[in-house]
Design a protein around this nucleic acid. Structure first.
Length: 430
DNA sequence: AAAAAAC
C-alpha cells in the first residue's frame, strides 16, 4: 500500500516523498487511517517497523489546521536519544510543512534550558520530551498546553518500567481532556492496559508485536566465562571487513572496561551509558551512525527505539534479564530486510535467562563452545536447569542440548557471585 | 543483581 492511497494532503505527500518513503509499512497501514479518523489508539508495535512515521504522518497532516504559536502535539518518550531521534524525523518530514518542533530533555549544560523555555512559551507545534525535564518546565508555570490536540506515549511499557507513571499522569493533568491520545507499547502487560483504560477513550487497537526476531538475523550463542569474552570476541571479529557493531552490556560499570580492552586489541570502540555526559552521548551516537568508528559499547539506554542504518552486528556481552530485551537489542540489526548477525555470550549465571528467551521464541537456540579450540580453555558447559525448580522433569542426560567432551569434566568453580580466584588481571590469554 | 530519567 502506498502513501497516496491514504486521505493525506498533497503537502504531506510531498513531504513523505522528500524523505524517500514510498510504501507504507504494516504498522503505518493500520495506524494511519485510524489516527486520521480521530480515534484514540492503543498500539502494540516495536520500533524499526516505521512506528514513528505511523503517528507523525497523520499528525503532521493536521498541523495546518491548528493556530500557529500554540503547541498542538506532545510526544513523551523514555530516553533522551529517542526524543532527539524523533525530533530529527519531525524536522525531516516537517521541513516542507512549516511545522516547528523541539526535543525537551535534561542532562544538558548549555543554552538548552533557555532554548527549551523559549520554544515552550512561543508554542512550537510539536514537543518531544522525556518526562522529568518537561515537568521541571511545567512547574515554572510558563508552559501553555491548553491547545494540545495530540498526545503520543511512545515505548509506554518502557516508561512504566522506569517508574514514569506518576510523571505521565502529572503531565497529562496540564493537557486538555478533549484530545486524541495514541499509546504505543512493545508489550501489553496488565499495567499498560490499566494505563490505557485511564487515559484513552474508546481506543481502536492494533497489534503488531513481533516477539520474534527478524528472519535476516543470524543468531549465534557462545558459552563463555567472563574472562574469555573479550578474546573470544576478538577472535570472532578477526575476518570482518568493516563491521558496525553495537555491544550491549547490562551494567554501565562494564562499559569503560570493555572499551579499554577492545582498544588494547586495536579496535576502535567508544562507550555510551547514562554515566556519560549528555553532549558526549550525542556526539558518540552521531559519529557511530556516520560510521566513524566500528564498535559502540552501550547499556540498554540504546536497546529500544534507536535506529542505526546498516548495523552489521549486535553483541550481547551478557544475556539481558528480560527476554523481551533480547529481541529489542538484536532488532537493532538486520533492519529493513537487511542481514545481520547477533552474537550472545552466555556465562554460567546467564544460562537460565537463555532458557527464558528460548521459551519466548518457542525454539531451542544453538549454543556453541569454541573457547577450547581457540586456546582459551574450557567454557562453562551448557547445563539443564538445576534442581531448584518445582519438579525435576527432565531425566538426566536426556532432552537438553548437550555438548560431549572435555567441557563436562572440569567446570570452572564458581560458588559465589564473583570469581575470586581467576587468572590475575591483565594476563592476556594467548 | 540493572538500566533509564530532573535539578
Amino acid at each position: 500500500m502506498f502513501f497516496h492511497e491514504f486521505a493525506l494532503h498533497d503537502d504531506t505527500l510531498d513531504a513523505i516523498e522528500s524523505m524517500n518513503f514510498h510504501e507504507a509499512t504494516p504498522v503505518q497501514q493500520m495506524a494511519i487511517p485510524k489516527i486520521l479518523s480521530g480515534t484514540d489508539l492503543l498500539a502494540c508495535a516495536q520500533t524499526g517497523t516505521g512506528k514513528t512515521g505511523a503517528y507523525l504522518i497523520p499528525i503532521l497532516d493536521r498541523i495546518p489546521e491548528f493556530p500557529k504559536g500554540q503547541t498542538s502535539t506532545l510526544i513523551l518518550v523514555p530516553t533522551r536519544e529517542l526524543a532527539q531521534q524523533i525530533d530529527e524525523q519531525v524536522q525531516g518530514l516537517g521541513y516542507y510543512l512549516d511545522a516547528t518542533s523541539i526535543a525537551i530533555y535534561g542532562g544538558n549544560k548549555g543554552p538548552e534550558w533557555e532554548q527549551q523555555r523559549k520554544a515552550l512559551t512561543q508554542g512550537a507545534d510539536i514537543i518531544i520530551a522525556t518526562p522529568g525535564r518537561l515537568i521541571a518546565h511545567l512547574q515554572l508555570g510558563y508552559v501553555r498546553f491548553e491547545q494540545i490536540r495530540f498526545v503520543v506515549l511512545d515505548e509506554a511499557d518502557r516508561m512504566l518500567d522506569m517508574g514514569f507513571i506518576g510523571d505521565i499522569m502529572n503531565i497529562l493533568h496540564h493537557v486538555p481532556d478533549k484530545r486524541q491520545t495514541l499509546l504505543f507499547s512493545a508489550t501489553m502487560p496488565p499495567k499498560i492496559r490499566e494505563l490505557a483504560k485511564k487515559i484513552l477513550h474508546h481506543p481502536e487497537e492494533i497489534n503488531l508485536a513481533v516477539s520474534k526476531p527478524a528472519e535476516g538475523i543470524d543468531q549465534q550463542f557462545y558459552l563463555s566465562r567472563d574472562d574469555q569474552k573479550i578474546p573470544l570476541l576478538i577472535h570472532l571479529m578477526k575476518d570482518l571487513e568493516k563491521p558496525s557493531m553495537v555491544l550491549f552490556t547490562s551494567r554501565k560499570s562494564e562499559v569503560n572496561p570493555i572499551v579499554r580492552a577492545l582498544r588494547k586489541m586495536h579496535w576502535q570502540a567508544r562507550g555510551i551509558s547514562s554515566d556519560s555526559e549528555q553532549t558526549e552521548r550525542e556526539n558518540i551516537l552521531r559519529d557511530f551512525k556516520n560510521h566513524q568508528f566500528p564498535i559502540l559499547v552501550a547499556t540498554d539506554v540504546l536497546s529500544r527505539g534507536i535506529d542505526i542504518d546498516s548495523l552489521s552486528h549486535v553483541v550481547n556481552f551478557d544475556v539481558p534479564r528480560d527476554p523481551e530485551d533480547y529481541v529489542h537489542r538484536i532488532g537493532r540489526t538486520a533492519r529493513a530486510a537487511n542481514k545481520g548477525t547477533a552474537i550472545t555470550f552466555i556465562n554460567e549465571q546467564d544460562q537460565p535467562r537463555v532458557m527464558r528467551i528460548e521459551r519466548l521464541l518457542e525454539r531451542d537456540l544453538p549454543k556453541q563452545s569454541i573457547t577450547e579450540e581457540i586456546g582459551l580453555g574450557p567454557a562453562p558447559a551448557w547445563a539443564p536447569p538445576s534442581g531448584k525448580s518445582r519438579h525435576n522433569q527432565r531425566p538426566k542426560g536426556q532432552g537438553a542440548p548437550h555438548k560431549p567432551g572435555p567441557n563436562n569434566e572440569k567446570k570452572p568453580k564458581w560458588h559465589g557471585k564473583k570469581k575470586r580466584s581467576g587468572p590475575p588481571k591483565n594476563s592476556p590469554t594467548k
